[in-house]
Simulated scan of single mutants.
Amino acid sequence: MSFRKAADLLRLAEIAGARHGGVSLDEIEETFGVDRRTAQRMTRALEDTFRGVRTRTDEARRKYWKLDAGEARMVFAQGLREAELTALEMSIRRAERDGAARDAEALARLRDRMLAAMPGPHARRVEADAEALLEAQGFASRPGPRVRVRPDLLGVIAEALKAPQRLTIAYAGARDAAPRARRVEPYGLLLGTRRYLVACEAGGDGRPRHFRLDRIASARLEPEVFARDPGFDLAAHAARAFGSYHDAREYGEVVWRFAPEAAAVAREFVFHPDQEMTEAADGSLTVRFHASGHLEMAWHLYQWGDAVEVLAPEALRGLVAGHRRGDFPALP
């Protein structure tokens, strides 16, 4: 067996041991990027290598492979790898950078517990390798512009989202002279140039509204819980905007055409999760999607100078007119 196949088999054993219901062929295909026959060979190798593999079939006749606890503990005893510790450290630093103090503390505790369970020499080697990877990637040296958000505010919102519980927020809208109290039912957070709390007003019409976190003066957790609308999908809701700002009046088809000299670069971008790209005979690239948020689109399009043209909507085309420079020395 090759090193790559052995590593994949160990990873499959980790997944089969960690997931309560086991792992299916579809999940193996998706995780390892293999076809059905290769996934089947991997499950046979799993059964041949580990005696504690059990299988079950669900109502849809999908088969799952589960590694029992005893053998799973042996697999997990190998501890953290440097790439995994690096990912943990990067997540901690992202949380600290974004003001999510509770998330940073929880991840740090997880990291420390896992390192403490490893033999000393192994733990020191993994820590040294992970530190080298972090320095090479330069994560700490890329702060980037962001709006400050108080960690205590994020902590209260996180607690409300778990239950879920209602919140009373002191919020200053664009037309408010001072913050006023609003009782809301939180559904999630949108992270972008600015951050928004997605919530419905308690006793209101049930439509989700957006509250800018930098305009929330305070937040108080209320004792009463509420039932979220089971039909609400945060990812689908977020996809209705280009960034974090939503405006139902702007929602519609967006069409951009990138010049041939910018097409190769633009092709590497995911401008929107539902985008469609088509290439023309002249080498230009057309991108289509449906969203709102013209101002955030204009901010992004400015970076491309005159290498991009807005074909639709007309309102966005007018917004960027006069700002398409041709003297930028590089593309985004």
Rank of each mutant, 00 (worst) to 15 (best):
R325A: 15
L9C: 09
T43L: 07
R183I: 05
E14P: 04
D48F: 07
R207A: 09
G144S: 15
G120A: 15
V34L: 11
G322H: 14
R150A: 14
V149D: 04
G22M: 05
G192E: 01
A330R: 12
D152I: 12
G188V: 02
V23Q: 03
L154W: 08
R267F: 13
A87E: 02
E105W: 06
G138W: 14
P121C: 13
E159S: 12
A248L: 10
F269N: 13
G322M: 15
D327R: 15
D306S: 01
K5W: 02
H272C: 09
A7E: 08
M118H: 13
A235S: 12
S24M: 04
T57Q: 09
R41I: 15
L10Q: 08
R93G: 10
A199I: 00
V225R: 14
R109N: 06
G17E: 00
F232S: 05
P186L: 01
R325P: 15
H20C: 04
M1T: 05
V310Y: 08
A235H: 11
V53Q: 06
G99C: 11
G173V: 13
A128Q: 11
R240A: 09
S24L: 03
A87W: 01
R102P: 04
A312W: 06
F242A: 02
A315I: 10
G52D: 08
E268A: 13
G204A: 02
L67S: 14
G305Y: 00
G231H: 10
A262L: 03
E201R: 00
L80G: 12
T49N: 05
A217P: 03
A266M: 09
T43G: 05
P145Q: 15
A280D: 07
L331V: 12
H323I: 15
Q165L: 04
A181N: 05
P186G: 02
A163V: 01
W65E: 12
P164K: 00
L190H: 00
E250A: 06
L107I: 05
A239G: 07
G283E: 09
L133E: 04
E185K: 06
R195H: 01
E71I: 11
V75W: 06
P260V: 06
L301A: 02
H294L: 13
R146Q: 15
V198M: 00
T193L: 01
R73F: 07
R240S: 07
P179I: 11
E71T: 11
T86V: 12
V198Y: 00
A72W: 07
A248Q: 10
A307K: 07
Q275N: 02
T49W: 05
E185Q: 09
S141M: 14
L311E: 05
A238F: 03
K5M: 03
E30G: 06
M277F: 06
G52W: 02
G17N: 00
F242P: 01
A101T: 12
R62N: 08
A330M: 10
A264H: 12
V149T: 11
E96L: 15
H122Y: 15
L316W: 05
E96F: 09
